[in-house]
Amino acid sequence: MHNLKSIRERLCVTQQVLAEGIGCTQGNVGHYERGQTLLPEVAAKLIAFAASRGLRIGYDHIYGDAPLPQLEAEVGSAHA
């Protein structure tokens, strides 16, 4: 199992935006969110996409139970 939907929601993006960011179709993202296996190479693209949008995650956040961090913009505004 993986946490793709939670990560997408944390990023505040649609399935289409995520698909464009990781190089697949919106349909693929939907399948992944419903439980299709997320291959490590797709997970690596997800990590890079998330980082580009201010969310620092790793494989533990995708496949494990590590709690998702806040977006860097959210963290910065919480300290202001």
Rank of each mutant, 00 (worst) to 15 (best):
Y59T: 12
P40E: 12
L38T: 01
E74K: 07
P67Q: 10
F49C: 02
A43V: 04
Y63E: 04
D65G: 00
L38W: 00
S52H: 11
Q36P: 01
I47W: 07
H31A: 15
A48I: 12
L55E: 06
A48C: 12
H61L: 02
L71P: 02
A80I: 12
G54D: 11
C24L: 11
I57W: 00
N28S: 14
P67L: 06
E33R: 03
G27L: 10
G76F: 13
D65K: 01
Y63V: 05
G64M: 00
A51Q: 14
K45Q: 13
A73F: 13
F49V: 00
L46C: 03
Q70H: 09
G27S: 14
L71K: 09
F49Y: 15
G35V: 04
A48F: 14
R53A: 09
H31F: 06
A44R: 15
P69I: 04
G35Y: 04
G27P: 01
L38A: 04
T37D: 05
V75D: 08
Q26V: 03
A50C: 11
G30T: 06
A80F: 05
H31L: 15
C24N: 07
I62R: 00
H79A: 14
D60E: 14
G35S: 07
G54L: 11
G27D: 08
H79L: 14
E74N: 10
Q36H: 10
S52Y: 07
G35M: 05
H31N: 15
L55A: 12
D60Y: 00
E33Y: 04
P67T: 05
A78H: 10
L68A: 05
R56I: 09
N28W: 07
H79R: 14
A51P: 02
L38H: 01
V29D: 01
P69F: 06
C24Y: 03
